[in-house]
Every structure is written in structure tokens, then in C-alpha cells.
Design a protein around this nucleic acid. Structure first.
Lengths: 158, 158
DNA sequence: CGTGAAAACATGTAACA
DNA sequence: TGTTACATGTTTTCACG
């Protein structure tokens, strides 16, 4: 289940998190390994779900989703039976890219991408209508995106 | 610069955002196109930076970064000359995965991954020491991650 | 002009020592 | 693990609508 990542694994992961298409031969040259050794390690890490996916990143603006919102949602903690359906609702909603349950008064934080303000408001409307335990929410508009990614830092010194 | 995405492009993007390794021949079967036509469209979208990258996603827990924090940072707006260096600081800090400038009183929102609480506090210490314009910050701990991704929804009906 | 078919090419995969 | 041979996927070329 859990696996040990050595220094070479971590260096390979650091590369793959920036460019999953980089040929194994080049990565081998980077880290001092043969191409097949690199491939074996990658296959192992996919198997062990250290690598969970390999995906293309799309520019939201060019794809017609220029708006990003950060939404704090407050939920009634008295009704835990409704939480499961809220989670399903969030999972099924493609505009919601990220969602965390966070410390605080029954709060969730959502990252939402939308076509425009109307699109976003319609989503929030549905959020409260479909989920009776949503008490209120507060929206912040992302005026600029300084950084975006899911890069997990790798310790490559030891 | 800007490019028109037709229905087929969008369907291909929807697939690639979930699995960038899917063979072009299978994608062609999915959308009703030959493998080479699919490849050409992908190459074009890479060229036009609709596809900004193809990356591996790594499980933070297995990589030794089990903690996620959502940090609201309040910055003194009176000193705009310090904003550039703050942006550079954020860009250079690998623990900060995402950063937005948002509506509100000079606020930034950061998504931070950390090894442990000490690791996180050391980062925040450096944030305030290195950036004189950081007035204060508020941290929320992600108790559970319901959803994580950068999938941009695609309208595939029209 | 974009598409599909078949070529050449590069890459990934699976055997071997 | 590295090297080799093999299978798979990608890129290019070209004729067609």
C-alpha cells in the first residue's frame, strides 16, 4: 500500500509533475538512470497510486471560463445526514474544481470556475436550493491568478 | 492568439483533462475522428496554448505532504511597490500550490501543502519576515479534501 | 483547408543476462 | 539495473472531398 520513495523516484516525480510527456530517455539522463529503469519506476508509482493521474491542463480563459471564485460555504452541523448528499452534489458539479472541509463553523471552501456572473449565480442558486443544510455562503472573486497548479514539492537533497 | 474550439476540440479536451495518456486512436473512436485528425487537433491546441501543460498528479499524502491549508493574507495596499516582490516570493515557494488576488481589503488566498504544522509555521514565519507589506494572515486547515483538480468544464452539446 | 490512410519515426514495453 | 528486441503510439506524407 504505502511505498518508499527514494531520491530517484522523487526526482522523477518532480519532472513528471511539470512535463508528463518528457521521454524516459531524457529523464534517465537527468537523474542518472537508464530509460527502462525510469519506466519501471514510473509504472510502479502508477500502480501504487503515488501517481494518481496524468492529465492535460487547459487554459480556463481560452476555454470560455474566465471567472474564478473562492466560495466559503457555511453548513448547519446539526444535520449530518445531509452532508453526504452535499458531497455528492459537489462531486457532480463540474464547475467546482476544488472543495475542502475546513476548520471553522461547519465551513467548506470551494474553488469555482464560471463563464460569467450569471452562470456563477445560477450555480449558487442551485447550491442553496438543492442543499437544505447550506446556511449561507460568501464569495470572493479572483481578480488575478498568481499561481495555479497541483505540484507537490519533492525533497531531492537526501 | 485566440482560437476557435469546435465541438470535437472540446470533447478531446474533456478526455485529455482526465487521461492525457489515452491513445489517439481510442479518442478518435470516442469522438468520431481518425487518430491522425485527433493528433493534429491536439498539436494545434498545444501550439495555441489552449493546452498549457501535460502533467502527472501526485498524491500529496504518499509524497509526505499530508497537510493542506487555506491561507487568507492581508496586504497593505499603501505599498504597491512591494507587491511585485511578494508575487515573486509566492512564485518561488513550492509549498504554495495556488494563489489568487481576490476582492476584499487587499487580500490574497493561498493554497499551501505542508509536511506538518512546524513546516507550515516556518513557511508563514518566512512570509511575514520576507514581505514587509504582509499585515496579517488567517489560516484554515483542510480537514478533508472532497475534490481536487483543474478540470475546466467543456460544453459538448452545441 | 481539414480529413483519412499508410508511410517512417520515435517512444514505451517486455524479454534477456 | 542495463541492454536488446518487440509492440505501440505518434508524426509525416500524400491523395481525396
Amino acid at each position: 500500500m504505502s511505498m518508499e520513495l527514494d531520491k530517484l523516484d522523487r526526482r522523477i516525480l518532480a519532472i513528471l509533475q511539470k512535463d508528463a510527456r518528457r521521454p524516459a530517455e531524457l529523464m534517465g539522463a537527468d537523474v542518472g538512470l537508464s530509460a527502462s529503469a525510469v519506466q519501471r519506476r514510473i509504472a510502479r508509482m502508477r500502480e501504487e497510486a503515488v501517481i494518481t493521474a496524468e492529465v492535460a491542463l487547459v487554459d480556463p480563459k481560452q476555454a470560455g471560463r474566465p471567472l474564478t471564485m473562492i466560495v466559503d460555504v457555511e453548513v448547519e452541523r446539526e444535520r449530518p445526514e445531509l452532508l453526504a448528499s452535499l458531497k455528492q452534489w459537489i462531486a457532480a458539479e463540474p464547475c467546482i474544481q476544488e472543495a475542502w472541509y475546513v476548520t471553522g463553523a461547519g465551513d467548506y471552501v470551494l474553488i469555482v470556475v464560471a463563464r460569467d456572473v450569471d452562470d456563477f449565480e445560477a450555480l449558487m442558486q442551485r447550491l442553496v436550493v438543492d442543499n437544505a443544510n447550506v446556511r449561507r455562503f460568501q464569495t470572493r472573486v479572483a481578480l488575478s491568478t498568481l499561481k495555479r497548479g497541483m505540484f507537490v514539492p519533492m525533497d531531492i537533497s537526501p
